[in-house]
Amino acid sequence: MKKYLERIVKLCFIMLFTLPIVAKAQTEQDGLMMGEKRLCIAGTYAYNSWENYWEGEFKRNNANIGVLSTRTAALMLNYGLRKNLNIMATLPYMSTVASQGTLSGLKGFQDVSFFVKWRPVKKQFGKQFLSLFAVAGYSTPSNNYNVDFMPMTIGMGSRVLNGRLTADYKFNKIFATISAGYMHRGNVSIDRSAYYTDHQINSSSVRMPDAGSFQFRTGYRNTRGFAEVFVDNMTTFGGFDIRKNDMPFISNRMNSSKIGLEGKYYLKSLPSLGFHANVWNTIAGRNVGQAAGFLTGIDYILDFPFKNSKK
């Protein structure tokens, strides 16, 4: 029995510290801040899969892939330097697998990302609150993972500079958040000495198109957590379409629009422990899989540096 408990504790520990985080769905996009000198440690597990995908605007499936699924475990840290200034770091571990065909799945740590989130404006007008946020971020591959075997790869291998503006409006417990981000992506070096996009390029360096990321989320929020619906769009500025029956490539023009539900809840009895989940579906896309997925996560918030027990 004791051994059993130990195992559970160990498992929880492993989940908390090695599981994913997911990355995007986390909080550099939302209208929330971690309190001053408080550290949030989050572990998330996410799953998504697709059967249909778009070659340019042509939607198809592929019996040589079947369903391509991606599992992501991520660890995220979010620290409140000030009450209006947070820093965050995320590292996901991912694995891919295709249900049919001969292509091998890949797995490994993906990109490590860092964000600084700043809330320059927080105004109250009676029961209405308005906050504005500015986020700057940088992400870089945590290792030299294989990027030249799409769609089985775990990432694009690009270093990304991220800038984002977010506005959050709340009336009573009802809120709406609108957010727009710009991703400036650095060139990626692939293992080949030449490749074809819409023309032949005799280099191993791939010019990556920049991309925009837009979100709208609205729902109910109180001190315990929130429940929301969201719309998420990624639009790549430039890049090229996958031709009919060609292989995908990192510099494709990848666009996608998703809708989803998301919620987070901190326990009444243990307010530093929170649970986080979402579920989403892709409603439109270009040169991407029509993925649907979910995420579950655990947050634990602690004071850092640790406060005296006196308090």
């Binding site: 800038g163 005799n202 280099s203 010019r207």
Partner: peptide
């Protein structure tokens, strides 16, 4: 400081040269 660093980041973005030099 933050304004400065955001400005710095923006300059970095603008100055990034993405041109690919081909072997030929």
């Amino acid at each position: 400081n933050l304004t400065l660093s955001i400005f710095g980041l923006a300059m970095l973005v603008l100055s990034c040269n993405k041109d690919v030099v081909e072997s030929n």
